[in-house]
Design a protein around this nucleic acid. Structure first.
Lengths: 322, 322
DNA sequence: ATAATATATACTCAATTTGACTATATATAC
DNA sequence: GTATATATAGTCAAATTGAGTATATATTAT
């Protein structure tokens, strides 16, 4: 028996780094218009249904929708994850249908030209404010998140140990250091603890009354967390950063983009030693003119690095002291 | 307009390591019965359609199908990738429908009890023989693969440079070392070069007349390659191996499982130094009795390692000399 | 019983990589 | 000219890795 009434949605987490922050492209119109009045229609990811007769591959379908909704022609695209839990999407409630959404990650360069048709770049850390440690430990961790997590941990005596362990791993509550890659673990924990509004929308838990971070339509914040986790992990072993940079750049520019994505400050001298000794970049011979202090040399990505090194990524020599 | 006639398939790459080889669970019956006579019906992955009214989540649907088809109750499961290209599945040809398949990876322990209802464990390297370097460089690389790849590279003068570069990265044809993680890159290159039979089945290329490795139904060999690539990568930073081992094990047993998966021989002393110094395992106090030489201490996974280390994996100190 | 063989485990040592600095150079802003 | 901002070179100890040697304790063959 063939399954009836399945719709496949294609969602794009399109990221760029501008003005020192990782940004995600959001839309307000589109498929969700009918479910909310125009004024408080939630921010959403570019989205479109997969249409088998029109789209030869899933990725081509995604590219078409993004171009149609935002005017942006995507370069680097990779598939993230497929989300299919029941009741993710309000459109399911009316009929008995099911919407399965395939999330994609796309990386675009600063100032990629596109007609801005209802699309807007938003700082990723508006949605996930606990992930930005560049100016030190975010105060909202100790002010809101940890107290609320503690309440959640003791709320269910039988699960107390497992909950405490999960919180300890995800948020480095005990001795271990903050792991920049556990973005999704942290989001999912906050969701289960009822600390993000979508948990209440989905009626998972109503105990905690605090809520942190800007909300997104449906499960789009989870998709963003999935994307950021992927980028932070992959940046170390694949030359992803260069998809976000102009063809030539200074080492400081490169470092700032890596810092924006990973959410931690890096040790400048050690960072530059890593990328140059690994021969991931090479000098172009030109110098940067718009700098404040001493002019910096302009570098470019060395494509041969992919052939020479098995893990051509950037490494994160975290700076301890501020 | 809602998309018409989409079916979602759930496929499981179920892996175990037995008798020194990574194995994948295969079936011969099931959904594919109608498309081939019983005798030369191809080996396939356990498969079932996603049924929205029956399955609350995609993963639960997969678990149900696997249990129904193989009698196996899965433990560790993770989603791999969603495959949706046109003409992946012969069932599409009859009507204009589309089958989108979500691939999952599952890891089970040696001797997991299950009723063998048409299911069979097959050595993964039967399908991907060029991936097993434990007994040195596989001869079929120089005998068949490289000559055929060379013909493919020069066949299209305009793409020659890109093809040569891709081959160089995937197969370490030039100076760089064999990268155990590039399993999918290598499979995809062989597919494009027409060196695996499914390429001819799909009429991608018919020029090369050699074909390497045992074939799988549909695009199931690609799914296996995706799974092996994932395991080889993830084993280094997540404690996956222990899903494949009995609760207690000797360090040699652990090493052999890692070697089977990664397809390379490891330096024994350095391997043991890594896992013990990282405190990934701890002694149980008991000794192994069934060994040949000096009895080995029995170890177990140290769960606290996940909290203490940000990358609790095993590391691959490759042995150079045989 | 003894030798050969297989495996376990301890230990060494040089080379490389990393973390945390110091020092110096070359711009612009005031 | 001084303060300030940034770039870049170099130092040095600690930790990690790669490639071994040495020794211990079992079983199997003779």
């Amino acid at each position: 028996m063939a399954a009836l009434d399945i719709n496949i949605g294609l969602n794009a987490v399109i990221m760029a780094v501008t003005e020192g922050a990782p940004r995600v492209l959001t839309v307000h119109k589109g498929i969700l218009s009918e479910y909310a009045p125009a004024e408080d229609r939630p921010t959403a990811l570019p989205f479109g249904p997969f249409e088998p007769n029109r789209h030869r591959t899933l990725e081509l379908g995604l590219r078409e929708w993004v171009e149609e909704q935002t005017g942006l022609s995507l370069g680097y695209v990779e598939q993230l994850y497929t989300f299919g839990d029941r009741n993710r999407d309000p459109r399911e409630r009316a009929d008995g249908s099911r919407v399965v959404s395939i999330g994609y990650l796309a990386l675009v360069r600063e100032n990629s030209p596109f007609r801005t048709k209802d699309a807007e770049w938003v700082n990723c850390y508006d949605f996930l404010p606990w992930e930005d440690w560049r100016k030190g430990r975010p105060p909202l961790l100790d002010q809101f998140i940890f107290p609320a997590l503690d309440r959640w941990i003791v709320a269910e005596p039988e699960e107390q140990i497992q909950r405490a362990e999960r919180a300890s791993i995800a948020f480095a509550t005990t001795d271990s250091r903050w792991d920049v890659e556990r973005v999704l673990d942290r989001y999912e924990l906050l969701y289960e603890a009822g600390l993000v509004v979508e948990a209440k929308r989905d009626a998972v838990l109503k105990k905690n009354e605090v809520s942190v971070g800007r909300s997104f339509a449906l499960d789009h914040r989870r998709m963003l967390a999935t994307a950021l986790a992927r980028v932070r992990g992959k940046i170390k072993y694949r030359p992803l950063v260069f998809e976000l940079l102009a063809p030539t750049f200074t080492l400081l520019k490169l470092q700032n983009v890596v810092e924006a994505l990973s959410g931690v400050g890096l040790h400048k001298q050690n960072f530059r030693r890593l990328v140059t000794n690994n021969r991931l970049v090479e000098q172009t011979g030109n110098m940067d003119t718009e700098s404040r202090g001493r002019p910096a040399a302009l570098f470019q990505f060395r494509r041969d690095a992919v052939r020479e090194r098995s893990q051509p990524g950037v490494g994160l020599p975290v700076r301890q002291s501020p």
